[in-house]
Structures are given as C-alpha cells and as structure tokens.
Simulated assay, not measured.
Amino acid sequence: VAYLWVLPADQLMLTETPAADVSKVLFGARGGQFVSIGILISVFGGLNGYVFTAARSTFTLAQSDRIPFSNVLKKVNKNGVPSNATWFVFIVSSLYCLTGKYDLLTDLSTFMVWNFYILTFFGVIKLRKSHPDAERPYKVPFYPVIPIIAIAGGAAVVISTIITQFTYALAGIGIMLLGLPVYAYYEKKEKKEKLNS
C-alpha cells in the first residue's frame, strides 16, 4: 500500500526493484542507493540464517540416521560445527541457484516455509494439550489466540498461493512429499535393527 501511494501500479509492475524505486522518488538517488544497500544486508542476513538453520536440521536428521549419508552428515569439526551438513546445504542451494529461476525459488521456499509455520503452530497447540505440565521457558502470550491467528494467516497465504500459482504450489508439495518415503524407509530400517539386536 505504501508503494502504491508513491508509484502507480502500472509503474510498479514493470520494475524488479520496487523498494529502491520508491525510495528514489521519496529521498532522491542517494536514498535509493541507501535502501538497496539495506535490502542487500537483509538478504545476506536472511540467507545466512537459512543456511545455518537448514544445516542444523540436516545434521539433526543425520544424527537420528533418518537420511541417506547420515554417517557423513552427522560429523562435526574440531569446533563442534556440523561442517559436512553445512557444505551439503550450500551445494544443494547452489544447484538450485544454477537454474537461474530466482522467482521460482523464492515462490517455492516462501510457500513451503508457510506450510511449516502452520504445522509449527499446530504443534504448539498439540504440545500444550499433550504435555500441559512441561517446563516452558517461553510461553506464547494470549494463548490460544496468537497461534490461531497465525494458523489462519498462514493458511490464507498457502491457499492464495495454491489458487494463484498452482504449478509452484504443486511442485513445492511434491518436493516436500519426496522426503516421506525416504523417512519411512529409514524408520523401518531402524525398527528392524532394534528387533535384531
């Protein structure tokens, strides 16, 4: 809405850098450069967080022997950092980037992140019911209102994406579902090993 107050929709749809263009109108050329630098810092910060979060998730799955190459991915270096898992995430991310379809990648990742956010908020509600006496260093304020609002907002984003970008949504769901048979295989393998021992 703020962008539309500054630039009309027909101009905004033609630009790949709406924030910088709006800033140029409001604050001049220097303002546009300043906002572009801020966006780059934000992007690199977000990327840094995603790489380390994904590496930790990969490392945790590897520790439970739930993914291929677990014996390699669960190793840590002398500082206790899961460097193999970090390199793995870096390589897979780089391969995705080689497609050159950055809009596709951001659309897919945003769609999938919102799916997991919804599951997380359902998890908060489920844990409150199944383990009411568990120690909680942090409690969600105004529970259950906040998780319900978050689930509704996330569902709106997910449903909107399915309606407006069905192919991307389907591809994202497909990629996510590819993990289920892999996880099921390793789960079954672990149960067999427990029975044999």
Rank of each mutant, 00 (worst) to 15 (best):
S42G: 13
V43Q: 08
F44Y: 12
F44W: 10
G45D: 06
G45F: 08
G46N: 15
N48S: 15
N48L: 14
G49P: 12
G49S: 13
V51A: 04
V51Y: 08
F52E: 01
F52K: 01
F52C: 03
T53V: 06
T53A: 13
T53F: 02
T53C: 02
A54M: 11
A54P: 00
A54H: 08
A54I: 00
A55S: 14
A55C: 03
R56G: 05
S57Q: 04
S57C: 03
S57F: 00
T58H: 02
T58W: 05
T58Q: 05
T58K: 00
F59G: 07
L61A: 00
L61E: 02
L61H: 00
A62T: 12
Q63Y: 00
S64Q: 03
S64K: 14
S64G: 09
S64C: 09
D65W: 07
R66K: 14
R66D: 09
I67W: 06
I67P: 04
I67T: 10
P68W: 08
F69V: 06
F69G: 05
F69M: 13
F69L: 13
N71A: 13
V72N: 11
V72S: 12
L73F: 05
K74C: 10
K74G: 07
K74I: 06
K75L: 15
K75V: 14
V76E: 12
V76F: 04
N79I: 12
N79Y: 15
N79D: 14
N79V: 12
N79L: 15
V81K: 10
P82S: 10
N84P: 05
N84D: 09
A85N: 01
A85W: 03
A85E: 04
A85Q: 08
T86E: 02
T86H: 09
W87C: 07
W87G: 08
W87K: 10
F88S: 09
F88Q: 08
V89R: 03
F90N: 07
F90K: 07
F90D: 04
F90I: 11
F90S: 08
F90W: 09
I91G: 09
I91F: 13
I91Q: 03
V92D: 00
V92Q: 02
S93N: 09
S93E: 06
S93C: 02
S94P: 00
S94H: 09
L95D: 05
L95H: 07
Y96E: 06
C97P: 02
C97L: 15
C97Y: 10
L98G: 09
L98A: 12
T99N: 03
T99W: 02
T99A: 05
G100S: 06
K101G: 01
K101S: 05
Y102Q: 04
Y102F: 15
D103M: 01
D103Y: 02
L104S: 07
L104K: 01
T106L: 02
D107E: 12
L108R: 10
S109G: 08
S109N: 08
T110F: 13
T110P: 01
F111T: 04
F111S: 00
F111C: 05
F111H: 10
M112T: 14
V113W: 01
W114M: 13
W114P: 03
N115K: 07
N115M: 15
N115H: 11
Y117A: 11
Y117P: 06
Y117T: 11
Y117M: 03
Y117R: 07
L119I: 14
F121E: 11
F121S: 09
F121I: 05
F121P: 02
F122R: 06
F122Y: 14
F122Q: 04
F122K: 08
F122D: 03
V124M: 12
V124G: 10
V124T: 11
V124E: 08
